[in-house]
Design a protein around this nucleic acid. Structure first.
Lengths: 305, 305
DNA sequence: CACTTTTGTTGCGCTTACCGCAAAAAGAGT
DNA sequence: ACTCTTTTTGCGGTAAGCGCAACAAAAGTG
């Protein structure tokens, strides 16, 4: 009710007469007259000076006019914002990933996305797997990327790629001469592993039980960056999915050797979002880009040349 | 047509369900559902995620919600402007404050305002800091006054005054003989403190860690009134910003001694309102009065005579 | 001053947008 | 699989808004 009345009043005031306003809007003069007097009634103030041929605004009328002008411009800016949202010119994606994904390959993907979608803001949160799942569930983030599968019913897995665990070491390390590494081989090397409680340690634990031995890492750290650096230094080896050191592998500063053990279950990269949440615009685009790239990441050659 | 639809959408989004909105507004759920989908049709964008029990906004929906909030506050300010134009000096201010501010000094400020602005209705809501921030954000109140800083981006801080924490006790209490009080001194006194989770306790916790001791309050309460009363009774001391006991300090029934510790960060009184909301009329006047008085409150002498 | 022209206001049927009720559909939990 | 809750859809009714036309009043005209 407000909307119409204000519009009629606005046009009438701008054009100086109800007649002209009626022509411009395409409604009968009577409607204009009625709507305006109705508006005056609800506002409790006269907006136009009564008993005049041409329309003259009262002080109150001027205020209402200003108000409506502002309202129109606000509405217009809302519409353009929505339009931009539709065209994915603007937007915001929040995603949570595990630390293991940080690296050159991932950075290049983000870079690529931002070049092709300027104006889209990306927020990256680094968290543990359980935190990521929680954030996805509670809509704190649009997309999550974790290093295992989750059985949460309300999580939708868009893509999951197997990422076998590998032993990473410097090219001149003794382990690099092996074709494949077993759990027993690891006993002979200085090890750098994540702490207990991490997924990788849990996987290794099963293999340790089978082989009836206990790995004693020389260094325990939560920082995957540090693990890569230690391995690159040459003395120690670390155990990670290949994806966690993609850039070092392609550079050749690290080499990967498959870690084979019957009890060892593979790590899995999962791209997840909340079930029932329809991602549109920016999040949807980033999701499909990641989906494609993840597939190609899994085809990295095992032995760097 | 816009007007109704936006209102329904707004309430539904705020309450989280169409059913609740229908109860609050007093129209059938079907109307709400229809109006919202109609709004979506005219805007050409989905506003809420379809097929869900609780209403979840899409990015576009959030924009529309923000837009409507602004519309509402603009309309309100138009109405007050018209009201003032009618030269009837009536109006209404709603503000939310923390319990710590209740006291004679604040009461006198309100009293002063009401004497100078007869006919203006003031509504005071007492809430916790987070509640106050929420109320300011959602336009439930015009002005908020909290005992810390907030990093909410949509909050505008009009004034913030540092309020060092002080130890409050009766004039004949042993603590009153000290020039300044340290965390270690507190161990010797009966303490009355707010519960853990309160800002004051968080500040104290840092100091406790530094001094490697743990304060064991004799009484824990959320009521600042009670804390003052306990301290006035003579046996115990409490830790509060001076502003929380201004009237007792000027009366001389309580004295304040500065609490000095390198780890202790000061409390801060912030006068806040929503970014982008232009306050006019009564709210604007009250805001500037409070701004001036707050400055003078912070200059209260440390030792009551 | 009478007449005309132009413009705003009022009266009266008519359309349609909006509403409530009830039934169906779809989630969410058990 | 079943139940409970919430949303969507179908249908008939009401009232707000519309156009048309008659009416009233200001401004121009001779």
């Amino acid at each position: 009710m407000w909307d119409n009345a204000l519009n009629y009043f606005y046009e009438a005031a701008k054009l100086g007469s109800m007649r002209l306003a009626s022509e411009k809007i395409g409604v009968a003069v009577s409607s204009i007259s009625r709507q305006i007097s109705q508006l005056e009634a609800t506002l409790g103030t006269a907006l136009i000076e009564p008993g005049r041929r041409s329309i003259r605004l009262t002080a109150a009328g001027q205020h209402v006019l200003d108000y409506h002008r502002k309202q129109l411009s606000d509405r217009e800016s809302l519409m353009t914002r929505l339009q931009e949202l539709r065209e994915v010119k603007t937007g915001r994606v929040v995603m949570a990933i595990g630390e293991g994904f940080i690296g050159d390959a991932f950075a290049r993907t983000i870079e690529y996305f931002q070049v092709r979608n300027p104006g889209i803001e990306i927020a990256l949160e680094i968290s543990s797997s359980t935190e990521i799942v929680r954030k996805v569930l509670e809509d704190e983030v649009h997309i999550g990327m974790i290093l295992n599968l989750t059985d949460e019913p309300k999580i939708r897995t868009r893509l999951s790629v197997e990422q076998p665990l590998a032993v990473l070491c410097a090219p001149d390390h003794p382990a690099a001469r092996l074709e494949a590494v077993t759990i027993e081989d690891l006993m002979g090397f200085a090890l750098c592993l994540p702490p207990k409680g991490f997924r990788i340690r849990a996987s290794l634990a099963a293999a340790e039980r089978r082989a009836r031995l206990t790995l004693e890492p020389m260094l325990v750290t939560t920082s995957i960056q540090l693990m890569r650096d230690i391995a690159r230094a040459g003395r120690a080896v670390c155990v990670l999915p290949r994806i966690s050191a993609l850039s070092e592998l392609t550079e050749g500063t690290l080499v990967a050797r498959p870690l084979h053990d019957p009890e060892l279950d593979d790590a899995t990269v999962s791209l997840i979002y909340r079930l029932g949440r329809q991602l549109e615009g920016a999040p949807a685009r980033l999701l499909s880009l990641l989906e494609n790239n993840l597939k190609s990441w899994s085809h990295v050659p095992e032995v760097a040349r």
